[in-house]
Write a protein that binds this DNA or RNA. Structure first.
Lengths: 140, 140
DNA sequence: TGACTTGGTCACCATGAGGTGACGGAGGAG
DNA sequence: CTCCTCCGTCACCTCATGGTGACCAAGTCA
């Protein structure tokens, strides 16, 4: 067990040393999914395929234009697949590709972090703002 | 082992069912760190404390204004600590707090994803653009 | 008396991301 | 004959993000 644990630690530190938050790589992923809607849509579609209008109703506040644009760029990157059913009225479903699903994991990690820590952040902000607003306690 | 594996899967699916990419939570984390520089700075500072001008030189393309603004908001959220050394000329160091370091993990996961998959994305884009640009092969 | 350093702040401006509302076409319902 | 639904596209406009360059304090060096 200590063998396993140590090997794990070594591997982890190796990975860390090799990759180390490269700003340029980070920039590239942010350019891809750092916009207002990409990750939201990936998240929604992760639960199962959805129709255009369904996404429009489900994603809080997205416009038709941005939905189209974002879906196109996701499709272009191979993260989402567009399936057309030639019916009348037309039906189009979007689904996450297996490739897209690999992105879903780190995103979920981030969401989890946010869920776990939003209270802490709120408290920190409150404290910071109070301290900046008036430092009555360190004046006499 | 199969016990362990199954317990793991159950836990995972529970976590998934409970959290499930909540769009609002995702939105909140994106509002916090989805800007142009926050994650970059967190990434840089993760390697150790840095001075203002040092960050200015190291972060590719950031302006003084945005560096100040981003550092302030990170400090406000308790992700980064500002340490002033009252010397002349002034010296200020920024370091990631333990809290900030917890964010560093999911960010690293995302960076790792980007590093692993940027080639795939490039290929997908190329294919998509070629298909959209001219479909000479399915015309006769 | 300047010029140089660090760590900012401020006013101004440009860009582009993203929202709004109109239009479309093909068919079905009233 | 008109209106509805679905899945978009297009032109237009707004507003927030973020860049630029000037300025500042305070001490040191020449």
């Amino acid at each position: 067990m200590s063998h396993q644990a140590e090997a794990d630690r070594v591997l982890r530190s190796l990975g860390r040393a090799c990759l180390e938050h490269d700003p340029d790589v980070l920039r590239s992923v942010l350019d891809r999914v750092g916009d207002k809607w990409s990750l939201i849509l990936i998240g929604l579609l992760d639960k199962g395929p959805m129709r255009f209008t369904e996404l429009l109703r489900t994603a809080p506040g997205i416009s038709r234009r941005m939905l189209t644009l974002t879906l196109r760029s996701l499709e272009r990157d191979g993260l989402v697949k567009r399936v057309i059913y030639p019916e009348i009225p037309p039906r189009v479903e979007y689904e996450v590709t297996p490739f897209g699903r690999t992105l879903s994991e780190p995103v979920l990690a981030l969401t989890r972090w946010a869920a776990d820590n939003q209270d802490t952040i709120r408290a920190n902000r409150h404290a910071f703002d109070k301290a900046a607003g008036f430092d009555t306690d360190d004046l006499d």
